[in-house]
């Protein structure tokens, strides 16, 4: 039983270290990327898995807390992509255009309605 707990603790430490590395890389991505949408890409993915992995690691090291920690993991997994999607749509509709090397933009056609109403409100 004691060795089993020891093994769980080592696995937990591994997850904690891995998660903190991903959190660091996500923050580095937020800092380095050239425009808003790419920052969102780096930030969402890396920070979601990073936080999930840190929380899971703590759960393995402290099995009594596991239920609540799983609730946190599920909540992060559902809420993080939702909030990044809301931010991406909001910033596109407020007029921030992505950075392109070669322009590929299918969404532009859908946005004309929003821009027309903006111009009306300015006049």
């Amino acid at each position: 039983m004691d060795t089993f707990n020891n093994i769980l603790e080592y696995i937990g430490l591994f997850f904690v270290l891995l998660g903190s590395i991903f959190l660091f890389l996500g923050a580095l991505g937020i800092y380095r990327m050239p425009d808003l949408y790419n920052r969102l890409q780096a930030g969402t993915k890396a920070s979601t898995l990073g936080a999930m992995s840190v929380v899971l690691g703590v759960g393995l090291m402290q099995p009594g807390w596991l239920i609540k920690l799983i609730v946190i993991i599920l909540f992060i997994g559902i809420s993080n992509p939702l909030s990044s999607h809301a931010l991406a749509r909001a910033s596109y509709k407020s007029g921030i255009r992505p950075f392109f090397k070669k322009k590929v933009d299918d969404y532009e056609a859908e946005d004309t309605h929003g821009r027309a109403s903006d111009e009306e409100s300015i006049n």
Partner: peptide, 30 residues
């Protein structure tokens, strides 16, 4: 990591950039 995200929060040219940095900061905080 949270320092890097905070630098983006200070620098970020638009309000949306700051909101993204805040989002990442809160996940790191959790």
């Amino acid at each position: 990591g949270s320092f890097l995200a905070f630098m983006r929060f200070v620098k970020g040219p638009t309000a949306a950039d700051r909101a993204i940095a805040l989002d990442t900061l809160s996940v790191i905080g959790i």
